[in-house]
Write a protein that binds this DNA or RNA. Sequence first.
DNA 1: CGAACCCTTGACAGAAATCAACTAAGGTGG
DNA 2: CCACCTTAGTTGATTTCTGTCAAGGGTTCG
Lengths: 244, 244
Amino acid sequence: MREEDKPEIRKLLLFRDMSTENFDRLMQAAYAQTFPAQLELIRQGEPADFLHIMMEGTVELFSGWRDRETTMAVVRPVSTFILAACIKDAPYLMSARTVEKSRIIMIPAKDLRATFRLDPEFAVSTITELASCYRSVVRHAKSLKLRNSRERVAAYIYRQSSLAGNAASFVLPVEKRLLASLLGMTPENFSRAIKSLQSDGVAMDGMRIIITNMKSLEAVAGPDTLIDGSDPLSGFPAATAPSI
Amino acid sequence: MREEDKPEIRKLLLFRDMSTENFDRLMQAAYAQTFPAQLELIRQGEPADFLHIMMEGTVELFSGWRDRETTMAVVRPVSTFILAACIKDAPYLMSARTVEKSRIIMIPAKDLRATFRLDPEFAVSTITELASCYRSVVRHAKSLKLRNSRERVAAYIYRQSSLAGNAASFVLPVEKRLLASLLGMTPENFSRAIKSLQSDGVAMDGMRIIITNMKSLEAVAGPDTLIDGSDPLSGFPAATAPSI
DNA sequence: CGAACCCTTGACAGAAATCAACTAAGGTGG
DNA sequence: CCACCTTAGTTGATTTCTGTCAAGGGTTCG
């Protein structure tokens, strides 16, 4: 892996508090790789061998059952994914594939597990990271169970705007069909949901969303920090940003 | 708290590996309380002050948004709940209420956080516990997104039977309307789903489910260890059993 | 004994998925 | 550079699924 990646990784919540010695040893065991778009990195059910760190690109975490498939999360740099499976030494519950060309660093799960046993600071960081992941999935499940598709789309748009500093306009970060799946609906329904939100202050131009009436959108979205929020991350707000 | 509770708690995955000294100190800070049925123990949004340990009874974890409410999990002894919020020192994402009279031990979150900073074994146990919780919610979300309501009910019944040693019959552990909410549907739809499963080997007599054709049920349920499974818990299989 | 409450059932309305057709944009290869 | 192909996205028609409303039976508990 590149030497210049190390400071970036070191900034991550998960790695910033551990000893330099342990960090360096972990990085020595790691290796980086660049993958083309649409490559399946991980297949659900397989044993978890590596913790993945996104350095560049975009990765989709998804799951399948029978002939159906659903997007569980979209991961952007710089952040880690598939941590829990590594810790449990258990099969991946989700598959992963690149959405675009991506550079990813992989750390052997074995080294990871060994490290948090001998570095208490790393153990605490892992605990905090996992607790965040857990809360993030709980929010996802709450949104699915408590809101209908129109409300989920509205809440998504409202949140993206908030993250961009209450911007009146922003560009969707990924394909619409991927977003639709993440939000638990078909592409057709996503399309219709946005169209129906025209009457509530949302316009769309290609991949750009324009909010024409923030109050109106807010009324539909019903934003709630216990669903749409993300836990404050100690230190580097930009470092871990899995929210798409 | 009762002295005889301590060995029970000590058997929990979360507490079995820590030093006796730290365990005893944690237990000293804890206190037990018995609550009547239908009492709200925790309200979502409030600061997380205590880790809860179920000793007797049943507790429902649920969430609300606007005027809607949904069951997120049902907790049975002996197990803990609301761990992640305590760790993050963040607001609870879920509310909790007793389903029946319950005895619960509460450990101040502050002591918990202090303890895993000074007891590496406890830190590792916390990591494993959280990873399990995370994977459990991921499964829940997968089931909601990949299956329709009939399939979720079938999978639930199939799994309960498996847990009872492939029993051809078992009694539902909680009220049907609670189960319905947990499985992401209305009580009416739950009722209809079971009725429609009659043609696939499921009969019902009050709270008792009778499986008349296991193969047929399995075909509908499509059981999948990556959705319906639970991670093996090191040591005490009966100790932590949040699966309802 | 009455009052809740849970569960079930039917009728209906609304939400969401499916199927099909069409457009637009992007990439490929001649 | 253009013709072609592929794919994402949109829209409409239709079916399927799910929630809502209303009513009635059964049980529990005060």
